[in-house]
Computed example of a mutant assay.
Amino acid sequence: MPLDRRPVASLWIGDRLQYLNQLCLKSHLRHGHPVTLYCTDTVTNAPDGVEIRPASEIMDVPMDIVEATSASFLSNVFRYKMIQKTGAIWIDCDAFCHKPFPDEWKWIYAGHGMRGALNCGVVGLPRQCELIEQLIDYYDNLPDYPAWWNANQRKKMDRQKGNESHAVKIYKTERTAFGPQAFTHFAKQTGDFDKAMTPDVLYPVPFQLNDIFYDPHGRVEGWFTDQTVSVHLYTNGTKPWWRKHKPLKNSYAWRMCKEVGIDPGEALG
Score class of each variant (00 low, 15 high):
M1I: 14
M1K: 15
L11T: 02
W12K: 10
D15M: 11
R16A: 06
Q18R: 14
L23W: 07
C24Q: 02
H33G: 10
T36K: 15
T36S: 15
Y38T: 07
P47E: 06
E57P: 01
P62M: 05
V66R: 13
L74E: 10
V77T: 12
F78D: 01
Y80A: 01
Y80D: 03
G87S: 03
D92W: 07
C93S: 14
D94A: 03
D103I: 03
Y109R: 03
G111L: 07
L118E: 01
C120S: 14
G121R: 05
G124F: 11
P126G: 06
L131S: 00
I132H: 03
E133P: 03
I136F: 03
D140L: 12
P143C: 02
Y145E: 05
P146A: 02
A147I: 07
W149T: 00
N150I: 08
R159T: 09
K161L: 07
K169C: 07
I170G: 03
K172P: 07
G179F: 06
F183E: 02
T184K: 04
A187K: 01
D194R: 08
L209S: 11
D215G: 03
F224V: 01
Q227K: 13
V229P: 04
H232E: 00
T235H: 12
G237Q: 10
G237K: 10
R243F: 15
H245L: 09
K249D: 12
S251P: 06
K258T: 15
G261A: 11
E266Y: 10
